[in-house]
Amino acid sequence: MLRLLASRIAQVIPVLFVMSLAVFALTDLLPGDPTITVLGENATPQQREVLRKEMGLDRPAPLRYLDWMGRTLSGDLGRSLRTREPVTAMIAARLPVTVELTILSMLVASLIGIPLGIAAALKPNSWIDFAVSVTALAGMALPFFWAGILLIRLFSIQLGWLPPSGYVPIWVDPVRNLTLMVLPSLTVGGAMAGLIMRQTRSAMLQTLGQDFIRTARAKGVPERTVVVRHGLRSALLPVVTVIGLQSGALIGGAVVTETIFSLPGLGTMIVDGIFQRDFAVIQGALLTVVLAVVVVNLLTDLTYGLLDRRVRLA
């Protein structure tokens, strides 16, 4: 297990390096002048030139990257050009929102996807199977934006059951927080549920056709136990893998969905940063997202190892 951990971490380092290059290049290529962000539209060219020197923007890109990387590695992500607030503090305030949305979405996706996938696998080619497949396809085909807006229209505007947007930290008012999170996590989780459903269905079908399932039945094990204890346990492996592999998309979905529901997470931070040409903010938030995706993938690998005793023992 420790060897597995070490080798996975070793694989992650080059990935992080490439991603940091990409983040830096992306912000560097972004059109716009950061001095406008700081000085406003009315500053003189001389004032701008002085500021550019001060910010080191006159130096070549590779040097600036090394500078930035050095500071980032020492934990200093700089300050917002606009508000002068430290970027690390901004991330610390917004990360919990994105993390909560991601976790809730994953929960929603699993709670919808796994049981429906099992139901479909238990009666292949039945009407349940058909209905589940069509729903799954629809869920995967709908863009987040559209699904989110549809949900708001239905549940907030027409039925008035749920608030359309806003945010309260979970430690301030847990009930209000969860109520506000229902629609966003349905938006992201619903989209992911289709994939989990399909994966669960096929993994379950494959497992239920195996000889050891027949052995369990020959022992007189009740069908529900056969499905859960013998079937699901094996079938969960590929499902967890898919959830893990999709975590990137999930975090991405959370980031996009935040803006629809005005949740103050990393997603809105990135979007605001882009509109305001606030480079340090964009870079910091993007890096955090990248790091999160990488860490979640790592955790998936390790969970896989825990679930599959054969991997752990090998």
Binding site: Q210, D211, R214, A218, H230, S234, R310
Partner: peptide
């Protein structure tokens, strides 16, 4: 009714 299956490799649950 007890049954011994033909394939002991695949007839045992690999994870139990």
């Amino acid at each position: 009714l007890g049954m011994i299956f033909q394939e002991p490799m695949t007839s045992l649950n690999p994870m139990q």
